[in-house]
Design a protein around this nucleic acid. Structure first.
Lengths: 153, 153
DNA sequence: CCCTTGTTTTGAATCAGTCAAATCAAGCGC
DNA sequence: GCGCTTGATTTGACTGATTCAAAACAAGGG
């Protein structure tokens, strides 16, 4: 069979190309990969792939609704394939690891700020900041620098 | 009297300097200013101010808890003086305008994702994306480019 | 199989933000 | 009030993520 990704691409009106399949493959392995990780990883399947090609592919995937771009403050953008399921993210201040969280309060409840100030809201994005299990445990060793300070709820 | 800002600075263990007072003054006028706006505005009070000085001042203010840095995806960082009151933001996809929203659900409720995946969460950051009243009204004219696409709750 | 049109490549450029060394000044102690 | 100490600002160069433009290329319809 043709791969499922090929179908996804066609369904979004996008051509099926090697760079795109390579990027999708990397995203499947690394659910929250940054552009650089994707470039490196995709070269296993398509060695001559350039960074710009990856940016182009990612832009197409995001525009086609196949991938989502998330941009934790202070870190390069990450890309993921989970789309349309209203989930949010946990980001570790120490190592930058990202984990998914299903929306805490139901279907799309976050879409109702108490006072929308005249805005028509179509998306609520939630980022939980903290320390991952590796970075806060008794065996913590701050395996990387802080990527963001502060602590306000 | 000495200005209130001077007291704030001292309270945070920071020296009171002209660049800092100038930056605070701009932030008071523009509650969600980016670095460039601050540089330009602060030069009214301190003409020789350099961008790097502003970055230094902002870093000090953020570290001292006097200002907060917010980074809407796809836009340069913004700074605001409201700190420690758990408010969130509405961002207009069309013109980039930012408005404050008090936390919809109480004191610090967002701090409880349904499944924290082993994370110790200390902050929840919420960004509501949509169109401001100017950009979605009958008289809308898309006065600026989209700064971010997509629409998932 | 060829042509059209969307993709990728190549190469250069932009923009926000950072780093380091040297100068300068806030504010403490005398 | 004076000078010293230390933190702040200036100056200038630099990084890293991302984007732009034009030319070469290939997917897939006819």
């Amino acid at each position: 069979m043709e791969t499922a990704w090929a179908h996804e691409l066609r369904g979004a009106g996008l051509r099926v190309t090697r760079p795109r399949l390579a990027v999708l493959s990397v995203l499947a392995e690394h659910p929250h990969a940054d552009a650089d990780t994707i470039v490196t990883g995709a070269r296993d399947l398509h060695p001559s792939l350039s960074p710009q090609a990856v940016y182009g592919v990612l832009k197409a995937l995001v525009a086609g609704g196949i991938a989502r771009r998330i941009e934790p403050a202070g870190a390069p953008a990450l890309f993921e394939l989970r789309v349309g399921d209203n989930h949010h993210h946990l980001v570790c201040r120490s190592c930058g690891v990202v984990a998914d969280v299903d929306c805490a309060v139901g279907a799309a409840p976050c879409l109702s700020p108490s006072d929308a100030a005249g805005f028509v809201v179509d998306e609520a994005e939630v980022v939980f900041w903290g320390l991952c299990s590796v970075c806060h445990g008794p065996n913590r060793q701050n395996h990387q620098l802080d990527i963001r300070g502060g602590a306000t709820a």
